[in-house]
């Protein structure tokens, strides 16, 4: 099949016009794949196992029973405390992101069922301002942790974020402390906290609740770290190792418990919950 492979590589390098929406090029292996095939495969490349970036609602959808997710406090809004204005005022940026994502900010939280097990779930969507954490995101993660503690539910977070939201200045930074304190309380109350890291999770999100999971699970090949790669390269003036800050790199360095593919995520999470926090038998 050598001749066939070669031929194909040449073909992908040429700029072929692909009919909109029917075919997708994998960000990782650059293969052109039929879109339906990817969708059927939970947005995972069937050729190289690359996990495409998907919306938070899709992620929650793959994890919990259909229709069981009930979102809470959707009407939380940022006050734009700094009246931040660069090329576009922050208030306008928020509006356009709301339109683009039909979310009010980058995070959602609520309750859901995994199999029949009630859980508390929270997450960040990368498509809303790079999943950055401002006051609303911090508040939602905090409320999720408080709700889980109050109702004695396991908490699951799913993150995809560039870090703290610059446009809210120190208010954003303080969300890291607030959310981490709430996670601390949740753990003391005896609840299990599972943190799922997906591509990419960085900065103030990694350096707060995301790395505080009792159990930390990453999707394969996700980029996860504290500092961004460009910043590190500029600082150390060296090329970075190949798999640097990928899930597998974190695993090798003892920073995460597991790498689980999208397909096995639900059963993995469910099994862990049923071991650590089995539902009380009703009497």
């Amino acid at each position: 099949m050598a001749w066939f492979k070669k031929h194909k590589e040449q073909k992908t390098e040429k700029k072929v016009k692909i009919p909109e929406g029917l075919w997708v090029k994998c960000d990782n292996c650059k293969e052109i794949i039929y879109k339906k095939e990817i969708e059927k495969n939970l947005h995972v490349c069937p050729k190289c196992d690359y996990h495409f970036r998907i919306s938070l609602l899709e992620r929650i959808g793959f994890l919990v029973e259909p229709g069981s997710f009930e979102s809470i406090d959707d009407d939380l809004l940022s006050n734009d405390p700094l009246k931040f204005n660069d090329s576009i005022p922050y208030a306008k940026r928020l509006e356009s992101n709301k339109g683009k994502t039909s979310m009010n900010d980058a995070a959602l939280y609520g309750t859901a069922l995994i199999n029949s097990r009630p859980v508390c779930i929270a997450g960040i969507d990368f498509s809303f301002m790079g999943g950055s954490m401002g006051s609303v995101v911090g508040e939602k993660i905090t409320r999720a942790a408080e709700l889980a503690a109050e109702k004695n539910l396991p908490l699951i977070t799913i993150t995809s974020s560039g870090g703290a939201r610059m446009q809210e200045g120190m208010f954003s930074l303080m969300q890291m402390a607030k959310a981490s304190a709430a996670i601390g309380r949740l753990k003391d109350s005896g609840c299990l906290y599972i943190s799922i890291l997906s591509d990419p999770t960085f900065g103030g999100v990694t350096a707060s609740f995301a790395m505080l999971g009792d159990i930390i699970i990453a999707e394969p090949k996700s980029l996860i770290g504290f500092a961004g790669q460009r910043v590190i390269e500029q600082t150390i003036k060296q090329q970075l190792p190949d798999n640097f800050q990928r899930s597998e790199f974190l695993m090798e360095h003892g920073m995460i418990d597991l790498i689980a593919s999208r397909k096995e995520m639900k059963s993995t999470v469910y099994t862990l919950i049923s071991h650590f926090m089995p539902e009380p038998v009703e009497s």
């Binding site: 890291m176 402390a177 981490s180 304190a181 996670i183 601390g184 309380r185 003391d188 990694t206 350096a207 707060s208 609740f209 995301a210 790395m211 505080l212 770290g225 504290f226 500092a227 961004g228 910043v231 590190i232 600082t235 150390i236 060296q238 970075l240 190792p241 640097f244 800050q245 790199f249 360095h253 003892g254 920073m255």
Partner: peptide, 26 residues
């Protein structure tokens, strides 16, 4: 700021900061 280096990432810069936030709060 916390150092952005390869070793810092390998040894869990994010985790070290996160744990301090959690533990200092209590």
């Amino acid at each position: 700021g916390a150092y952005p280096g390869i070793g810092a990432e390998e040894r869990g810069q994010a985790e070290a900061i996160a744990i301090n936030l959690q533990e200092m709060s209590k």
